[in-house]
């Protein structure tokens, strides 16, 4: 049986977040299973199921080099800049 990853939109206005996974042979059954497993108490208003094998993921071992380019760029944050005294709304 195929493994499906389940993403749930908890409420209107929020984006889907990963909730867990289910097993099923086809998408329709996966959706039903996901509904039964993850939304028994109205935890969601919308469900996505995605074949786990269709997800490409970064691996934990490469965590450092993979995310390294963002680490030393402090000028991407507003706090890097000095706001002169008295300048409002910046």
């Amino acid at each position: 049986m195929t493994l499906w990853e389940v993403f749930i939109r908890a409420r209107r206005g929020l984006s889907h977040t990963h909730a867990g996974s289910v097993h099923a042979d086809d998408a329709e059954t996966a959706l039903r299973n996901a509904r039964d497993v993850y939304t028994r108490r109205q935890e969601g208003v919308s469900i996505w199921v995605v074949r786990a094998s269709d997800i490409a993921a970064s691996s934990p071992e490469e965590k450092d080099p993979f995310f390294a380019p963002a680490a030393d760029k402090i000028y991407r944050y507003p706090t890097f800049y000095e706001v002169p005294e008295g300048a409002p709304h910046l």
Binding site: Y75, R76, Y77, P78, F80, Y81, E82, V83, P84, A87, L90
Partner: peptide
């Protein structure tokens, strides 16, 4: 959220 530095860096250049 990302825009906030854009305006500040411009302001800093002019200042």
């Amino acid at each position: 959220k990302e825009e906030s530095f854009h305006q500040r860096q411009g302001y800093e250049i002019l200042h």
